[in-house]
């Protein structure tokens, strides 16, 4: 089913939805000398900008940087957030990233109560990308920036026209006020955009998962990570990085983001550190995304969103790293994945 709106109707729709739901969407935020686009809860639809990919991923809605686990003793109820959230304007890279988080936190053998609660309380409306940015490469990784059926509703904007493709009829009621649209017009937009993304010239021919032993013991890690400062920027901006730690505050246990880029992440109380140098830590990050997670869950843990590069203080580009891995493995020849 397709529903259409113009910007005025969209505003009316969001105003109506905001009576029953909290609405989060990309908004422009002034951050000191930087102007950023972030996902935030909004007060009025006028704040929303769909202009470009937001600078931070919507990860924080599902895995907050700090999350209180209420009290320390088991059996305590979590806070039930009664009002659901509509998370508006999530692009393919971030939708695919959620699948990685689902792999981990909604594992068959283990369900993370906190993550599950957020996941159930948030209805996502996806957004079709109209153009890439210099740092993103989702297409190279087999992700379609133009259309994605993993959100119940997926939005295409062209000028003043908004086309909502409803993938999950259960959520069609959200758009009941809007008239139905024409499949043909939408197909046209998809085709147009697919053509514009086809120009992407970054190609990769990597076995997935990367062969663990061969890639791990490759000689290039020291050179590739030479400039890595060891801050946590790439991991904190990454839509799929989920490593976490616990901390205590006045007897209450909380969970917080942590980063494999930090030396303290793996350092034992005895002082022993299994990953003592930065190249080992950088290797861990790349291997986890391109070898270990695919090995365990059959999915790359990178969606090519490019935020690691956009925000890296030394502009370390994961594409150059992957290219080096590619040519090394090709040189080695016949290396089978896994």
């Amino acid at each position: 089913m397709i529903k259409v709106a113009n910007s005025e109707e969209l505003e009316q729709l969001l105003n109506r939805l905001s009576q029953d739901y909290k609405i989060a969407a990309p908004v422009v935020k002034r951050k000191g000398r930087k102007e950023r686009i972030e996902y935030e809860y909004i007060d009025s639809p006028g704040e929303i900008t769909l202009e470009r990919q937001p600078d931070s991923s919507p990860k924080k809605f599902f895995l907050p940087q700090n999350e209180r686990m209420e009290v320390e003793v088991a059996g305590a109820p979590g806070t039930e957030d009664k009002q659901k959230t509509i998370l508006f304007g999530v692009r393919s890279c971030d939708l695919e990233a959620l699948k990685v988080l689902d792999d981990v936190f909604l594992d068959d053998n283990y369900i993370d109560a906190y993550y599950q609660q957020h996941r159930e309380n948030i209805i996502i409306i996806g957004l079709s990308c109209s153009e890439g940015k210099p740092s993103c490469f989702c297409g190279t990784l087999g992700i379609d920036p133009v259309k994605n059926d993993s959100a119940p509703i997926f939005l295409y904007q062209r000028g003043d026209r908004y086309y909502f493709k409803v993938y999950d009829e259960e959520y069609a009621y959200l758009l009941e006020d809007l008239p139905e649209g024409d499949e043909g017009e939408l197909a046209e937009i998809v085709e147009e955009r697919a053509a514009s993304f086809a120009e992407n010239n970054f190609t990769l021919d990597l076995p997935v998962p990367l062969p663990e032993e061969t890639t791990f013991s490759a000689p290039f890690w020291g050179d590739l990570a030479e400039k890595c400062l060891g801050c946590g920027v790439c991991t904190y901006y990454c839509p799929t990085c989920y490593c976490f730690g616990f901390f205590w505050e006045q007897g209450e246990k909380s969970r917080c983001w942590d980063s494999c880029m930090f030396a303290s992440f793996t350092k034992h109380a005895s002082g022993h550190n299994p990953r003592r140098s930065q190249d080992q830590r950088y290797r861990q990050r790349v291997m986890h995304k391109y070898s270990y997670h695919p090995e365990n869950y059959g999915r790359l843990a990178c969606t090519g969103c490019g935020r690691c590069l956009d925000n890296c203080p030394v502009n370390l580009d994961i594409r150059s790293v992957l290219k080096t891995v590619e040519s090394y493995l090709q040189e080695k020849g016949g290396v089978k994945s896994g």
Binding site: P134, S135, L309, D317, R319, S320
Partner: peptide, 8 residues
């Protein structure tokens, strides 16, 4: 950087 053209 080869792909981004950014200074590094």
């Amino acid at each position: 950087e080869e792909y981004s053209g950014e200074v590094t």
